[in-house]
Design a protein around this nucleic acid. Sequence first.
DNA 1: ATGGTTGAGGATCAA
Length: 275
Amino acid sequence: MALMRVRVATWNINSLRLRLPLLEKVLAELDPDVLCLQETKVPDPLFPADLFPGRAAEHHGYAHVAYRGMKGYNGVAILSRIPFTVDEAAPDWCAKGDCRHMAVSLAVPSGPVALHNFYVPAGGDEPDPAINPKFAHKLAFVEEATAYFAAQSPFTRTVLVGDLNIAPLEHDVWSHKQLLNVVSHTPPETTRMRQWLETGFVDAIRHFVPSDRKHYTWWSYRNRDWRASDRGRRLDHVWVSPDLVSSLQGHTTLKEARDWERTSDHVPVSVTLSL
DNA sequence: ATGGTTGAGGATCAA
């Protein structure tokens, strides 16, 4: 059977409704077959009926759409050209019902592919679980996810994407030393993330970008000039099961999106596979 | 050490 190009993109959009015009721009730039979004910040009843006003029917080619949102915070969505079924049995992490994850099975002709879209808790400011419940939640969330995938291991034909809110490697942050006690890069987080990865994933972005090269996907709004200060972090990730490594074709981190008007503080990331 | 900005929603809270 002929293989199919499957390009999966992930973007923390930081309000879907506010950035609908940029959504179309991301699709034009990356041409993904599947786009996973985080921080949609839209309750399900208010999810836009027409994602691309004035464009072609059926969502501008992305006929398959699923979403899980809530008021004010969090929320994930998946737009796809490839049909999928939603995994309704996926866990409700930390039993909070807080719309931080969706799993689907993509109907790729060569066989189904499991796709996980995660929005891991940011964890607040204080990196001490004893005094900061948000940090405790973050650690517990990652531990639950680790246990979930460990129980399935070894798994195949699986792609995991999302805003994982952890920059695991030295060169995933602008200053390893200065961020060691800053939430997103602390040893309790990076250690747990490594354990999660090692349940059976390969870091697909670092497959393409050498680990000794600085690489970021997020720059704070709180910098006068994000590009000049370049105090970025790699918080957004694409992982694949080892059987898919030989299918990896390329990747794009759309850094230019950080310069768009009224954009997200995260930029889109895509990985292309031949499946 | 501190402050810096953005979004949701309508006061702060989350990031």
